[in-house]
Design a protein around this nucleic acid. Sequence first.
DNA 1: AAAATACCTACTACATTACTAAGTATTTCA
DNA 2: TGAAATACTTAGTAATGTAGTAGGTATTTT
Lengths: 158, 158
Amino acid sequence: MKISTRGRYALRMMVELAKKQGDGYVSLTEIAEIQNISKKYLEQIIPLLSHASFLTTTRGFRGGYRLSKSPSEYCVGDILRVTEGSISPVSCADVDNPCECEKCGVCKTYPLWRKLTQIITDYLDSVTLDDLVKGRIELDSVEDVRPEERRSEDGRQI
Amino acid sequence: MKISTRGRYALRMMVELAKKQGDGYVSLTEIAEIQNISKKYLEQIIPLLSHASFLTTTRGFRGGYRLSKSPSEYCVGDILRVTEGSISPVSCADVDNPCECEKCGVCKTYPLWRKLTQIITDYLDSVTLDDLVKGRIELDSVEDVRPEERRSEDGRQI
DNA sequence: AAAATACCTACTACATTACTAAGTATTTCA
DNA sequence: TGAAATACTTAGTAATGTAGTAGGTATTTT
C-alpha cells in the first residue's frame, strides 16, 4: 500500500512551483535540480499535471511552468488523483468507479474499505498546496504510541 | 496506492474464522470455498497469520485453524501489518521504520505523509474483527460529494 | 543561427503480484 | 494399519507495474 514516486514527485513539483509562485516561469531543469530528481523522469510526470490544467507553460528559451491558480486552490487529493489514478486503497471501494463485485452487499470487509477510502479522501482533499508550503500540518504528539502499548497500560495483554 | 490481495484475503480469512468462532477448527478448503479464493494461494498467506500467533492450528484429518483470541481482540491494523508489511502509504513516514532520508526536516511533504499515516493507522487500529462481523462500520451518508462540487456551491469554480 | 526549453514516443531492467506445482509431515478414522 | 485428509514447505512463473533512460521533435529567445 504505497503511493508511487509518480504521485510523490508530482506533489514535490507542485510544492516547488507554489514556493516560486509569482517568480514567472520555472524550468524543469531547475525543479529537477532543487528536488534532486531525474529531469527525464519528471518530463514524463509533468504532462499529467499540465493536461489537467494545473499548470501554465511556455516553451522555448526561458520557458517553463507556473501554477495556473493560487496555491490555496489546489488540494493534495486532486494532485494525487491525477497522477496516481485513484486514491482508494481498495479498488472496489473507489467512489468514482463503483464496485463491480456482486458481493458488496454481503461482504463484511467492504464497509471498512469504504470508510477508509472516505477518511483518506477527506483528509487529502482538506490540505492545500498553500498549507504544505506554509507548514500548516499539525501532527499529534502521541502519534508513536501503538495500540498494543496503550492497551497494556490498563493491564490487558494481547 | 493499493492494498494487495495478500492483506485483503488475510482479512477475509480472519473474518471467516471470526464468524465460525466456537465451531472448532475450520479447514483451508472450507475457507477457500466459502470465500471463493484459490486454496493454494491462501496456503501461502495463512502462515503469516499463524506465525504471528493469531491462529491456533491442528494438522491431519479434521484439522484446521481457529482464532487464538476472541474476535474483539484483533484489530484490522495488526492483521494488515502482518500481511502487508507496513500500513504507511509512504515509507519515510512509517512509524516503525524511522525516516532514513536526511531531508525530512526541510521536506514540505513529510508532515503530510506523516499525518496521513497517522490517520490511517488510527482508524485501522480502532476497528476489530468483531466490528466487521457485526457490521459496526458506520458510513457517512454524504461521502460521495467531492470537494469540487462542494466548492462550486458557493459560486467559486476551480 | 545557437541555445534552451517544452513535448513526445519508445525502450528496459527490476521488483512485485498473484498465483500454480509438487511435494512432505501429521493426524484421524474405518 | 492403511487410506484419506489435512497442515506445511519450497520452488517456479506469467503478467504487470515501477522507475527510470534514450533519443528525438517543436518552439522560442537571444
